[in-house]
Design a protein around this nucleic acid. Structure first.
Lengths: 214, 214
DNA sequence: CAAAAACTAGAACGACTATTCCAAATGATC
DNA sequence: GATCATTTGGAATAGTCGTTCTAGTTTTTG
């Protein structure tokens, strides 16, 4: 919640605080905030900070210089946009409800997100049920890449599937290959491919959290 | 370098700054440092901060409150202590040369480290050559846990191996089971186990970075 | 329209902060 | 013993900081 019910200037203020903390390693002062957002009065800044605090986005330590803390500390994680499988395409991109912290390996947060793998369709590539796959958004890919392919059907929101991508030039079609010998590949003629399918991105990393009950 | 050539009080000061930043999210003021280290004079604190800066451990922004930055960026990653395999035990713990950033999922940095997996000995558990395994240090484990087991031979530094741990009570021995049907388990009588073997820790996560040439 | 909420500016206060200067111990080196 | 770097205390200064106050405008809401 919260971020949506903040006004435009409060959102800009919050963004500035986040960026300042990331680059400077400390929260900004009220005056630094005002200078950045062209706010002439420190009291004015204080007012909006109080609002942000009331909305639960930050917390403040009274009287302390730079006494701002972020309550939502998931700054570093990348959003988990949904679940994905190969056998039965699932809807994704309903908005991130979760996030997974994979550190600073993937800094391009604009173009990186994660999905939770469902099923055993990529098991022979050692991608298991429950694994997080880190996806880098891109519209093109190379033969053999593990990609998120979206099937856009008329009227229906696209359903996504995780598969290896192969371009079979001699047959002029695309093969989406699961990594499970019990499952069949999807063969798509190039003409239909261009019209109905779209590469959303490719897998750049896999993260598996082992259940550890002790 | 640098940290070694700092005096005891400067080391304590540096530690306090690191801990303060970790818990408070901002650097401490000179006065807060003095209060913590029982230094009566702010000028005194300033003197030691100047020394720390000269030795390259911190950098300072003149006149700014809390204007301290750590130059050695707080290794957010966890140290990669070496390589490990099941087939041919490898020496580890030669000191970390590398580190991998797995985010804030594992905050107990004192008791967590990573290893690079070599070989296909755990392939049926979907742990591949090149994967990072995140290890949580602990001396005991449960049946079925994937553990780092160290064989301590006389005179030789211990060699480590990654396997699943099983305690076979009826035979009074320990089985270290690779996840590769081509490889045989290691069976160790309980008496020898207690004397020559040691559990270093268990796998809590797996991180795989896919080669992405575009 | 009227009332309420949100937003903006300016000024001022007291506390906090980094820095500097002075003076004096302590410990090591030669 | 003399010299030097290191370590400590006290005081003072100029500026920064969070906060509060008054007073006005704009926007939203009923």
């Amino acid at each position: 919640m919260s971020l949506e019910q903040a006004s435009e200037i409060q959102r800009r203020m919050y963004d500035f605080i986040v960026n300042y903390m990331k680059s400077e390693g400390m929260p900004p002062t009220n005056r630094e905030i005002g200078r950045e957002l062209n706010i002439a009065s420190t009291g004015h800044v204080d007012y909006h900070l109080t609002m942000l605090e009331k909305k639960g986005l930050i917390s403040r330590q009274a009287k302390k210089s730079r006494g701002i803390k972020l309550t939502k500390q998931t700054q570093d994680g990348i959003p988990v946009m949904g679940k994905i499988a190969a056998g039965e395409p699932l809807d994704i991109f309903e908005g991130a409800t979760e996030s997974v912290d994979v550190g600073q390996n993937f800094t391009d947060t604009e173009n990186t997100y994660a999905l939770v793998v469902r099923g055993r369709s990529m098991i022979e590539d050692h991608i298991c049920d429950g694994d997080y796959v880190v996806i880098k958004k891109q519209a093109t890919c190379r033969d053999g890449d593990i990609v998120v392919a979206v099937h856009m059907q008329e009227g229906v929101s696209g359903s996504a599937t995780l598969k290896r991508f192969f371009q079979e030039k001699d047959h002029d079609r695309v093969r989406l290959q699961p990594a499970n010998s019990e499952l069949d590949p999807i063969m798509i003629p190039k003409t239909i491919w261009d019209r109905e399918w779209q590469i959303q991105g490719k897998v750049v990393a896999i993260f598996r959290q082992c259940i550890t009950a002790a």
